[in-house]
Simulated scan of single mutants.
Amino acid sequence: MFARTPRLLLRPGWMEDAPALAGAINDPAVLRNLSHVPNPYGVEDAQRFLALPHHPLMPRLLAFSRTRGAPRLIGGCGLHRGEDGVPELGYWIARPYWGLGFATEAARAVVGMARASGVRTLRAVHCTDNPASGNVLRKLGFRFTGETQRRHSLGRGAMVDCLIFEQDQGGGMNDDPVLAAYGDDLPVAA
């Protein structure tokens, strides 16, 4: 599964991306906002992540800039099975590229892929002390559900307060026939 946006190429990660992935994500300012990524993050962690199986309804893509020369790994975006089975959107951007709209651009492409596959309900979660992520979600049409949740963050090595956002395209999360067809075969987050 690939996607091109005006400034990005999103594609599955390949094993040869491991050094670039480790280099881009292994920044305490990035890792502290990620629940499923250990801190520090080395090449072996990247290799384990890149070796995970892919699922057609749960894209897990690396984002490469398509501007100014050779493509450069600047982040990642994808879906994973949330704690209650509802697909959750996740994304990260390397610090040199913060504030340039890349998270919104990448996430919009992944949400579009999910919608094209028939997924109706998406959820996203962000740490309460990361309002920039909430801004991205609002731009994408997600709404704050009013719920907070404590989740363990590998990046922080601690429990953190998170805000729950949802985007629903009709139908409830429990009657989504596309997701129901796959049952427990949907992957969990890396």
Rank of each mutant, 00 (worst) to 15 (best):
A3I: 04
R4A: 13
R4Q: 10
T5I: 08
T5M: 08
P6T: 12
P6E: 09
R7P: 08
L8T: 10
M15C: 12
D17W: 05
D17R: 00
D17H: 01
A20G: 01
G23T: 03
A24R: 00
I25K: 01
I25D: 02
N26T: 07
P28D: 03
P28L: 03
L31C: 00
R32T: 01
N33W: 15
N33P: 05
S35I: 14
V37A: 05
P38H: 07
N39D: 11
E44N: 08
D45M: 03
Q47L: 07
Q47T: 06
R48E: 11
L50D: 01
P53C: 06
P56I: 02
L57I: 09
R60V: 15
R60L: 08
L62C: 07
F64H: 08
R68P: 13
G69S: 09
G69R: 09
P71K: 13
R72V: 03
L73A: 02
G75S: 07
G76S: 09
G78S: 02
H80E: 08
G82V: 09
G85Y: 02
V86K: 06
L89A: 03
L89M: 06
G90H: 13
P96K: 05
L100D: 06
G101M: 00
A103E: 04
A103I: 12
T104H: 01
A107S: 10
G112H: 01
R115L: 15
R115V: 07
S117Q: 11
V119Y: 10
R120A: 11
C127S: 10
D129F: 09
G134W: 04
N135T: 09
V136G: 06
L137C: 11
R138T: 04
L140M: 08
L140F: 08
G141F: 06
G141K: 12
T145I: 04
E147H: 14
R150I: 10
R151W: 14
H152E: 13
L154V: 14
R156M: 02
V160H: 13
V160E: 09
V160C: 13
V160N: 03
D161H: 12
I164W: 07
F165H: 13
E166D: 13
Q167V: 04
Q167R: 15
Q169I: 15
G171F: 10
N174A: 08
D175R: 14
D176I: 06
A180N: 14
Y182D: 07
L186H: 10
L186S: 08
P187I: 06
P187C: 10
V188A: 14
